[in-house]
């Protein structure tokens, strides 16, 4: 959810611990936080834990929230950190400072050139295809996955994504391009096979 679509909340009331206003905030942002955690972690129970911890931490930190970013971006930031902590617990050998899987710094050059755009929508969005879309996103290194989820799934701007992840806008753009190209490559393999089946 970008700043332009977020609802207006009274920061004064939220900082003062107004429960009605906080309940409104939770209802307005719970789905986006749950979605992010589900895409990051691929586990409903872990996603629910992240959802709860995000709003618990927000509740505690609201009195000192300075409003340098939107509430929405701030909540995403807490949720990303919670999700990364969960991933670290699953893979304790990876340090938090390391910020996830290594990303190949070489330029990513496309190798798949099947034009699968013409496949019918019901094929592109079948339940099997949706499962594959989820699997493909899980194959992305964490650094790329996080940027892609915030920018292309949740629709944050480059600036909001950079604020949520504490990255420069240049770094966000670089990771976004790599994420998009890798996913396109994965999807081309999958839909390319569907295309071949259709033409036989």
């Amino acid at each position: 959810m970008s700043e332009s679509t977020s609802q207006a909340f009274s920061l004064e009331a939220l900082r003062a611990g107004d429960r009605t206003e906080f309940a409104r905030l939770v209802d307005a942002h719970a789905s986006q936080i749950y979605r992010l955690a589900l895409k990051m972690l691929a586990d409903p129970q872990d996603a629910e834990d992240v959802l709860q911890n995000t709003f618990l931490k927000a509740m505690q930190a609201l009195p000192s929230f300075e409003g340098r970013s939107s509430l929405s971006t701030w909540l995403y930031r807490i949720a990303v950190n919670e999700s990364l902590m969960t991933l670290r617990r699953r893979k304790p050998e990876v340090s938090i400072a390391g910020n996830g899987d290594a990303v190949d710094d070489d330029d990513y050059v496309p190798t798949q050139f099947e034009d699968w755009c013409c496949l019918p929508e019901k094929e592109l969005l079948s339940s099997e295809a949706r499962t594959y879309l989820d699997q493909a996103i899980r194959q992305l290194p964490e650094k790329l996955r996080t940027v892609f989820i915030l920018r292309d799934i949740e629709g944050l701007s480059i600036r909001e994504t950079s604020q949520a992840l504490d990255l420069t806008e240049t770094a966000v753009k670089t990771r976004l391009l790599r994420a998009r190209l890798r996913l396109r490559e994965y999807l081309s393999t999958y839909y390319g096979e569907r295309l071949a089946k259709e033409s036989t």
């Binding site: 099947e114 755009c117 998009r180 396109r184 999807l187």
Partner: peptide, 11 residues
């Protein structure tokens, strides 16, 4: 074209 479609499908 397929990159645009990739983004569209995830969205």
């Amino acid at each position: 074209d397929t990159l645009k479609k990739t983004i569209y499908l995830y969205h």
